[in-house]
Design a protein around this nucleic acid. Structure first.
Lengths: 197, 197
DNA sequence: GCCATCATACCGACTGGTTGGTATGTATCA
DNA sequence: TGATACATACCAACCAGTCGGTATGATGGC
């Protein structure tokens, strides 16, 4: 429901009605709407970890670069149908709550940070196994992948349809291929380093 | 205010108080809160176009690839301080309203589409002037750039601080450099210029 | 086996406050 | 004189959260 209407627009009563639970029962188990949001973000972290890093077959590929590529392929393959069905609950919620609820922001940060940290492991291993043409910071690339996905979700919501979102992820695929020197055997490495002032 | 608290959490009365206007005056000029949202998205389109495509000095660079690179540098240079000050109003609002208000979704789509179309012009010219190592669809790359920016905004909100967002945009810079085969052609070695206003 | 005690789980009516929007009155100006 | 531009008071709906009360089940003394 949050992925469809947003956090503020989803009332506790809506949630209760959908869950087949009374408001009294709800407030018996959760101190506030905010507490549910935090619990839901935590639960999302666990569910997403299983769905993305445990269940798929490709997570058992031996080559970490193949796993990384399969990971992005997998995320792309999820982008079809209604946006509310494939977008990120945590990313949606944090946009509304980051400035008003530190508890929610922290829970969403934990969720995204856990995802990026896990992804950075494979990236680090991929760098070891297949030295890229330019130096890569694993966590920074994980952040970039996360950003492309979150941004693609916004595109899908905006367009009402996921083709632009998919185009964006396809460019991410191209980037990873270029980084790890697939397709072209180009020897010069005078690429400018990302400049961080 | 929407960039800070979100659309639903921003009341008409809040907006009126901030603008020094009474509620009566507001509803004299706008039929509804939704009508204001649409008008604000339209206004955002115009303001952003001027700020990004007219005012900066680098828009008058002759080489379209230099303009494209300066563009991304410029967007990166804006990512500092509080997230509410540099994030995208339209991208924030559409996430909450895309499923509940077709009028708002359409206005936000028009804003983002106008930005991408304009960016795609420079990309198309850059492709002509500096044939890339792999085929590029101008509008698709524009979508990708837009996605990275929107995703970076989410990262900044989540982390409470924009360094991860900047890392992501720096990867976008690297991608563009790789795409256009920097070093491969006989181009000048540094077409960056200090971004500012 | 039986009852008193108590904690947990839950219900649903209610409350104080907020919200988008309206109805009505008034000042200004062409 | 009439249209425009407001201001003020107000309303019905809604919302998060509370509160008094009930059902259930575990514990323990006798």
């Amino acid at each position: 429901m949050v992925r469809q209407r947003g956090y503020a627009a989803t009332s506790v009563e809506d949630i209760c009605a959908d869950a087949g639970v009374t408001k009294g029962a709800f407030f018996h188990h959760f101190a506030s709407k905010e507490a549910l949001a935090v619990a839901a973000a935590d639960a999302w972290t666990d569910v997403a970890a299983v769905r993305i890093f445990t269940l798929p077959d490709w997570v058992r590929l031996s080559d970490p670069l193949q796993r990384l590529i399969a990971h992005v392929d997998f995320r792309l393959s999820m982008m079809e149908g209604a946006a509310a069905d494939f977008t990120c609950f945590v990313g949606t919620m944090v946009q509304e709550a980051y400035a008003t609820s530190e508890a929610i922001r922290t829970a969403c940060d934990a969720s995204i940070s856990a995802y990026c940290a896990r992804l950075a492991e494979d990236i680090a291993a991929a760098i070891d196994a297949h030295p890229p043409r330019i130096p890569i910071e694993p966590l920074a690339l994980a952040h970039h992948i996360q950003a492309v996905l979150q941004g693609a979700f916004i595109l899908a919501k905006t367009k009402g349809e996921p083709s632009a979102a998919r185009e964006s992820v396809q460019h991410l695929q191209t980037y990873i291929a270029l980084l790890f020197g697939r397709g072209e055997t180009n020897e010069q490495d005078d690429f400018r380093q990302p400049a961080g002032h």
